[in-house]
């Protein structure tokens, strides 16, 4: 009797260990999302893409609003969950989340692990000058360039432009702008998202973004599982929302630079 019990316990332990549970496939993401009745989107707190509104306590932001619209189109609820950014691929591939939608830079390395939607937004470095400036793209090299210390703008100024006269501010990109305002620098190299949100407004109304000048393009896309059939739906959704002006309005509201070429 005792031996039988022992044997049963041993079998039970092996069974639990090897997790011999019925396996089911989830390649059909559209169906599994609809069956679950919710679209689970992995995010982090990242203004202006995904963040919690202080007053309402609800998720908001450029990406969050789009994600909610997409879920509505699928006829399911939208659930935004905070993930550890380092674990984003594990979260996605283990089906804990259905999409990564968090101003994610789509690069080649990540593309080997997951699929990307059509790119809907972009980040780049732009040149900000005074409104009456006569500086041209070629002239930036010899001008005094203000950047934030350690920023992508600094890298661009050193490598892409090859500027020699650099003013490095350690108090953020706004510090670089104030150099231009004060006339102590001719041009500032900062993020396009940042530039679009402040340049030409209030204290920075005397500044403008130099047309036709941008460096180090990064594109933002939504992350999906490899070969997910959600991609076709998502791409169609993003293009439709660009065509009807929704994305353009949201971009203006949250001051995000959209990737018009990809969405056309």
């Amino acid at each position: 009797m005792k031996k039988i019990i022992s044997l049963l316990m041993a079998i039970l332990m092996i069974a639990t260990l090897s997790l011999t549970l019925t396996s089911c496939s989830y390649k059909d993401d559209v169906r599994s999302v609809k069956e679950a009745g919710k679209l689970v989107v992995g995010v982090t707190i990242y203004k202006p893409m995904d963040y919690i509104d202080d007053e309402t306590g609800e998720w908001t932001g450029f990406d969050a609003e789009l994600a909610k619209m997409f879920a509505k189109e699928l006829g399911v609820n939208c659930q935004l969950v905070i993930i550890d950014w380092n674990n984003k691929v594990a979260e996605l591939n283990s089906k804990q989340i259905d999409l990564i939608w968090n101003g994610m830079t789509a690069d080649e390395k990540l593309g080997k692990q997951i699929d990307f939607s059509v790119s809907y937004a972009k980040n780049a470095q732009v040149a900000v000058v005074k409104k009456n400036s006569t500086l041209t793209k070629d002239g930036i090299k010899n001008a005094t360039v203000a950047v934030e210390n350690g920023s992508a703008g600094e890298t661009v100024a050193r490598t892409d432009i090859g500027a020699t006269k650099l003013v490095e501010r350690s108090d953020g990109q706004v510090g670089a702008l104030s150099e231009v305002l004060a006339g102590t620098a001719d041009v500032a190299i900062i993020d396009i998202t940042m530039a679009q949100s402040v340049v030409g407004k209030e204290d920075y109304s005397d500044l403008m973004i130099l047309e036709g000048v941008s460096y180090g393009d990064e594109i933002f896309a939504v992350g999906l599982r490899k070969d997910s059939n959600l991609k076709a739906k998502l791409d169609a959704f993003l293009k439709a929302k660009y065509a009807d002006g929704t994305i353009t309005d949201l971009a203006a509201k949250y001051e995000v630079g959209i990737n018009e070429d990809a969405l056309k």
Binding site: L19, S23, A90, N93, Q96
Partner: peptide
């Protein structure tokens, strides 16, 4: 902790 949470999904066994 990582394995218990992610492995079942990664191996297509089940989702918590």
């Amino acid at each position: 902790v990582f394995a218990i949470f992610y492995l079942p999904g990664l191996l297509n066994l089940f989702v918590w």
